[in-house]
Design a protein around this nucleic acid. Structure first.
Lengths: 299, 299
DNA sequence: GGGCCATTGTGCGAAAACCTCACAGATGGC
DNA sequence: GCCATCTGTGAGGTTTTCGCACAATGGCCC
């Protein structure tokens, strides 16, 4: 007669983090626990629901179809909870940086300790959103978009990293030799936050792809990438987001990457910038220069 | 750098249950814990978010505005989680009863032990939904609606309780002597699941109300009633749902109740009913007869 | 093919979170 | 004023969860 026979909520939280990261270690970092704790929680959740949520070899885990569905529901649910929470009187001081969730997870957060080490006196508060930039709420925003796009009036844009992108997929999904036709025949994965990615790639690569057998759309970049890792199809992956997954072999990019039309850009209000903002912007430029470009360069 | 600085999830679950019930004791029953556990969890949640979520004297608690908002977000979030969970291979045996959430909470669940005592050999599994009836999934459905409405072809309807309804509100909200004009001047609360309630009441009472100063709509019946208890306005309350709140003084119904156009009805597939279905239907009829009608009878 | 790297699985003891029990405090009705 | 109905809380026990350290697994490279 229990109205909500839900699994333990902490296990759901752990699994949700795993779902976004695709790896226990980074999910554990996010939750400030050890990877062992996440491992147990995910395992216990699987026991509870009686369905496999993850599969694959231990060093290349992927979500199952059921796991992907659950993880997406959980992300949506937790977002909803966050929205419903009353805002505390904001006494967050320091540099307010607004960034897209996937960019934060895949690129910025791993590098942030470097900035903190270099400038321990400059507190940084990250705010993750896909919404438009509001300089009443933020000091510096990072956006990925065509040059000059989405930059509000009175703002200054500082590109700090080239936006390469290319089709990525699970290692083993493409059977024979890599070819454009073979890739085009796979289910194609899309994301709501950057819908024109495939069209842009076709333009830059000088190719017109035939219609894919299946199109599938995701709310978030990271779930599209997890779906790709799970072998559900081929996604258009920005280099900065998939670099790590390529390095460890969770994804492959058989056609390489092409120069995107856009650059990844730091956006600041025009005019006299405070020292923390300048420091952070310059640090971004330096980090961008240090991020290696993709090795294969084109179709 | 934690991505989700959420309050403890168990506290959120406890508060969500409180939000639906409006009382710690019944919320605790739902969660299979003691009222003390719920009390602590809610308190700790308030400390965490730094905002009062409940207020009022201890025996007539109500949600604050912030609490109402949070509770609704949480209900939606938990519903989402439930939907995302993989369905376990259904080996639930016994009588499958489909019922609207508020009717379950306010009327059926408190009486269900009586049925279990009388027929311990008939397992009952409750399924709460506002959706249409699907007899592939259910053996008996309970619906509140105008006679003949929403009853699928090939089904049989057994009304078992009269549907009285009347305007209800927090005790103290109406200042002077109760009058139709005074009630009409209050903010009016509505629910998505039974939108024509006010119009029906006006018809039955032979009154045409002027437009209210404010209209406010809720996704769920129970949140509309909690909003009424919190003093946010006047709701059209079905007798069966508000009986308990009237008895303990959380709500008052200064204009009494009128006979609704509808009856509360058990819906079964036409034709030979199994013994459990017959038993349960007959029990509903008996319980309906035992539920006292409202005392004041009309405007 | 053997060693190395990155990652996840697990036994054990410690720590934290949570709950129950029992009773006190509050409020309103009669 | 007394009773009935709820909620608040102190003390103590139980369950859950975690960290630590190490084992296990699979892939990659030379």
């Amino acid at each position: 007669m229990a109205r909500r026979p839900l699994p333990p909520l902490n296990a759901l939280r752990a699994f949700e983090a795993f779902g976004r990261h695709g790896r226990m270690t980074t999910a554990a970092d996010e939750l400030f626990v050890t990877h062992g704790a996440v491992s147990r929680q995910v395992r216990s959740l699987e026991d509870q629901v009686g369905v496999r949520l993850i599969e694959g070899p231990k060093n290349r885990l992927r979500l199952t179809e059921a796991g992907l569905k659950l993880a997406q529901s959980l992300t949506q649910a937790f977002d909803l909870v966050e929205q419903g929470l009353p805002k505390r009187p904001d006494k967050v001081e320091g540099l307010r940086v607004t960034v897209q969730p996937t960019f934060a997870m895949k690129w910025l957060i791993p590098r942030l300790p470097d900035f903190v080490d270099a400038h321990p006196d400059v507190p940084v508060s990250l705010h993750e959103t896909n919404g438009p930039v509001d300089f009443a709420e933020t000091d510096l925003a990072i956006r990925l978009g065509a040059a000059g796009t989405g930059i509000p009036a009175g703002a200054e844009a500082t590109p700090f990293m080239q936006h390469y992108q290319g089709p990525v997929m699970a290692p083993g999904l493409l059977k024979g030799a890599p070819s454009i036709d073979a890739v085009a025949a796979l289910p194609r994965l899309h994301t709501k936050t950057f819908a024109p990615a495939w069209a842009e790639w076709e333009r830059r690569a000088g190719i017109a792809l035939p219609r894919p057998p299946v199109d599938r759309e995701f709310d978030h970049y990271f779930y599209m990438l997890e779906a790709a890792a799970a072998g559900l199809g081929v996604a258009m992956g920005p280099w900065a987001f998939v670099q790590r997954d390529l390095a460890v072999g969770r994804l492959v990019a058989p056609l390489g990457f092409v120069d995107g039309e856009a650059q990844i850009t730091a956006i600041t209000p025009r005019g006299g910038l405070s020292r923390p903002v300048r420091l952070f912007r310059d640090w971004l430029v330096a980090q961008g220069a240090q991020t290696p470009p993709p090795t294969g360069e084109g179709v």
